[in-house]
Amino acid sequence: MALIAFYLIAAVTLVSALMVIMARNPVHSVLWLILAFFSSAGLLVLIGAEFLAMLLVVVYVGAVAVLFLFVVMMLDVDFVALRQGTLRYWPFAMLVGVIFAAEIVLASVMGVKSRPEAFNAAPGASTNAEAIGQVMYTDYILLFQLAGIILLVAMIGAIVLTLRHHPAVKRQNIARQTSRRRGDAYELKDPKPGQGI
């Protein structure tokens, strides 16, 4: 039963990954990418890493892919023209792909032989959420914090590059808007007929 599910989900993952690079419409590419993420989450559930699977869906499908979709939908680029002549890069692409595939195969084959416990979803803990927490926040806390700082620096860099203050631009001042009272907005007058204010 689990084997059938594995082959089904793996096939969906591979086909959708292939369609990411085959689809003509970039929006379709992103939609296929989302399907690939989602079925990878299914594979993670099958090996018993349900916490990782849910995180994959929440982070990649729920946030990262939404941003991809945003950008791709709003780009006004003629992708057909952009694709002209991409074929001449295929030897290079093949080389990179082969190296990737070889590394993955090598790592997993050697890994299974030398350290079979590395493929256990929850080693030494009751749930895999606890196992991940143990590794990330206790064993490698320094690296975790460093990764966070690197991301923070990247974020600040992006903000510094794009933030511009134009003096002419009017901005919403929420404090002033909420502190506005009825008396500030209007005033009651009682003009006599024929006199005006």
Partner: peptide, 17 residues
């Protein structure tokens, strides 16, 4: 589910699609 809350969170984050 062991990760029931996360499952709900994941599914509701998919709703945007």
């Amino acid at each position: 589910l062991n990760v029931g809350v996360l499952y709900l969170f994941a599914i509701s984050s998919l709703g945007v699609y």
